[in-house]
Structures are given as C-alpha cells and as structure tokens.
C-alpha cells in the first residue's frame, strides 16, 4: 500500500538554512547540509530545497550546496526557486536533484511547465503554487489567488484554475503553499488543499502551517493530500521526523517506518 509522505522543506538563502513567517521576516537558522543528513537518517521520505536568494553570486553557492546534499542522501530530492528555463532545470539535475519545482516563472510563462515535462519527464516536474486567500468572487471563483515573487506580487489568476492548467501542461505533482498559513504553525489550509486534491488526478503536497502532528494528520485525511511538507516544526527541533511518523502511524496513517 502506498504510504503518505513526509517531506521536509529547506529554504536556503546564500547557503544557509532560513525560515520565514508568512513569507517575510526571514531568519538564518542553520546549516542545510547538516539538517538534510539528520532528516535522512531519521526516515524522511523526501527533501525539498528552496532557493530563496536573489543574486547570481548566491545561485552559484546554491548549486554547490545541492551537490553536497545530493552526495549524502539517497531519497528523492527536489529543488525550486528561480528556475526560468530547461537550462536552469538541467543545471540542478546535474548537481544531483531529480525533481524541479517551478513557481513564479511558470505563472509568467506557462509553457515552462510543458518544456520541463518534455525535457525531464512529468514525474520530475513539480508545480509549486503560492496561494492567497480571498473572498469568493466572479474573478476568483475558488476564493483563492495565485501570487508570485515570494508572495509580493498578485496575479489575478484563480488558484484552482491554475492547478488544473498546470496538470494539463504536464506537471507531475502540485505543491499547495498557503501564504496565510506559512510559518504560523497553526495548521495547514485544509479547505484549499482538499479543493485542489479533489479536482486534479496528480499527487498533491500540502505546504504551509504545520506546527503539530495533528495538523499533518488533518491535511492527510480531511485535506486529502498525498504528502505533507514540514519546515519550522522540525527545523526548530520541536519534533523529529521519526516522532512525527510514529505518531501518524499510531493514528492509522500508513507511513514508511522500516528503513
């Protein structure tokens, strides 16, 4: 039986592990290479790296860090942030990632999704969506809007519409990242996750807001997510990956515990 996945997300800025709250107040909190190793040994199912740096100098550091991490973890490794074309994707693949997360650049140029799917396979092309909650309206029938550039820029694109479009263009998985919940540790945005998970036929990864094991349980059951992304709750040492998985197993969620 297919297990539910626990994915740790490392936001990396200039080679350092960082964490924001609602996409702002980003702080450096540690060494991403050390964290990756620790989570791997603890039974993490997958690792995501987000490059949240802006300058080209820092991008070089990122490739270096990706390479170092890839050399010591033997689980799926996905990288996102600043990927504008197939060439960027291939550079990251060359450094040792196997999945690529596209985000803002795909909103600006949707063909990026199909180009990546063709070049590296749909299964390795992940569409990551940053989503803002609004009131339902004619413009936003789902009540959620896609935002880009780290949450700074609104797009007038309805979130559900974009999720369906992404699937059609060849994305193999979707990351549903709620800006309202990011870093709050108050729980995932369940209604949003469920709405998208029920509408698409590709796997959905819930992101933003995990603070307690109960939150993960909720998004994997009521939220219908296939995987849950965690950040703050493991980075700050509140819970270990193993503890989270054992707790979920005890509540009847099928997770990977033999490794």
């Amino acid at each position: 039986m297919l297990t539910k996945r626990i994915i740790a997300c490392l936001d990396v800025r200039a080679g350092k592990l960082a964490k924001s709250v609602k996409f702002v107040d980003t702080k450096d909190i540690g060494d991403p290479i050390k964290a990756a190793r620790e989570y791997y040994e603890d039974g993490l199912d997958e690792l995501v790296f987000y490059d949240i740096t802006a300058s080209s100098d820092e991008r070089g550091i990122m490739l270096n860090v990706v390479e170092k991490v890839a050399a010591q973890i033997y689980i799926p490794f996905s990288v996102g942030g600043g990927i504008r074309n197939v060439e960027d994707a291939n550079k990251l693949l060359g450094a040792g990632a196997e999945k690529i997360n596209v985000n803002s650049a795909a909103v600006q140029r949707p063909e990026l999704i199909s180009e990546c799917a063709l070049a590296i396979g749909s299964q390795n092309t992940v569409l990551s969506m940053d989503i803002l909650k609004l009131k339902e309206s004619r413009e936003f029938p789902s009540g959620y809007e896609i935002v880009i550039d780290g949450g700074r820029k609104r797009t007038s694109i309805d979130a559900l519409e974009w999720a369906l479009r992404g699937e059609e263009l060849g994305a193999g998985e979707l990351v549903i990242n709620s800006i309202d919940a990011d870093g709050t540790r108050n729980g995932y945005e369940i209604a949003l996750t469920r709405m998208i998970a029920e509408a698409v036929s590709i796997p959905v990864i819930a992101s933003g807001g995990a603070g307690k094991p109960e939150h993960i349980f909720e998004v994997l059951t009521a939220g219908k997510a296939d995987a849950a992304l965690v950040a703050s709750m493991v980075h700050y040492g509140d819970y270990s990956v193993r503890e989270l998985k054992e707790w979920l197993q005890s509540r009847g969620i099928n997770v990977r515990l033999r490794y």
Binding site: M1, L2, T3, K4, R5, D45, S122, Q123, G172, E173, S201, I202, P203, K224, D226, A227, R256
Partner: peptide, 13 residues
C-alpha cells in the same frame, strides 16, 4: 476510481 493518482508516486511495499 478518481482518488487514485497517476503517476504512482511515493513509497510502497
């Protein structure tokens, strides 16, 4: 069944 996703992605026994 619509709940079964394709690709089959993840850890299975």
């Amino acid at each position: 069944e619509r709940t079964l996703k394709i690709p089959h992605i993840g850890w299975n026994d």
